[in-house]
Nucleic acid binder design. Structure first.
Lengths: 148, 148
DNA sequence: CAAATTAGTTATTTTCCATAACCATATCCC
DNA sequence: GGGATATGGTTATGGAAAATAACTAATTTG
């Protein structure tokens, strides 16, 4: 209804790119949560599993750097995924402090299905943007990311 | 150093706009936290104060809608700002359930200074983008936001 | 006027994120 | 070789953020 009026109150904040990024991101993350619910995955378990699939043998500490999650907080995530038999920890024989993380067959199937669904749902959100728009957006976001 | 190698592990996730949005947003929000620290403001107190300045007399429930924060969670925020004498609650005489929120002189000065600093710091992050790039980005983000 | 709605609040829970401290193993370097 | 130092994973803990249920006072609706 009166979306204009309501949202007008945040006119000051709308001057900030950070604010707009957050609003846009909220749409994606709310959507992501919905899409992942049937798979009993959250954003962080999804990201973790997807990364392990892409980089089998990756270590928890590497995962921590890549996903920008503190090491301690990843332990429970990895535990959970292992308990559900989606990934497994294998002792590294060269460095016996470390584990390599590997997907199981189940985990692999699950994440591929989930990835596809996430893809589909993102496409819906972005339906009003052209391919060029999306490429442009991706590029701009990448430039922001690499600017630091 | 080997940023390429490390970040390469998230190649799967990089296909998602949502992931890139989150990464970009993280840069802004980490920066924002730093800029606001000297003012003893957090993102949420900053947004609240800025909105009250722009819309004096706004109600907590309106604020809740605008900022997408649950009502109960705003109570403590407003309490805090009021305790610090940055805003005040004034009973609405037409509707005596409600309060209007108004900035104090102190609050107004503080937020204007903070807003300026945030502006400056955002500009630094966006230094490598042209004005056109920024306009383009803003427009794309707005389109995403209004697509739902 | 009774019922339903709205504004604000309290209380509580869950999740998220960060920090400190620890054990086991590996590396450094004298 | 062996002690100091660093690294990988873990435990424990606390604070901040976000969500829900339920309550009160006041207003609106029928």
């Amino acid at each position: 209804m009166n979306n204009e009026i309501k949202n007008g109150h945040d006119a000051v904040l709308r001057n900030f790119i950070g604010y707009r990024l957050k609003r846009a991101m909220n749409i994606f993350s709310a959507n992501l949560a919905n899409v992942l619910r049937p798979y009993d995955l959250r954003m962080i378990t999804f990201s973790t599993l997807a990364t392990v699939i892409h980089s089998p043998g990756i270590r928890l500490s590497q995962l921590s750097e890549v996903l920008a999650v503190e090491r301690p907080n990843l332990v429970a995530i990895v535990d959970e995924l292992q308990k559900r038999a989606l990934i497994e920890r294998k002792r590294d024989q060269q460095d016996r402090r470390a584990f390599g993380l590997f997907p199981t067959e189940t985990g692999s199937k699950l994440i591929h299905e989930a990835l596809h669904q996430v893809d589909v749902s993102e496409a819906k959100i972005l339906a009003s943007l052209s391919q060029d728009d999306i490429a442009q957006l991706t590029q701009l976001l990448t430039r922001i990311e690499t600017s630091v």
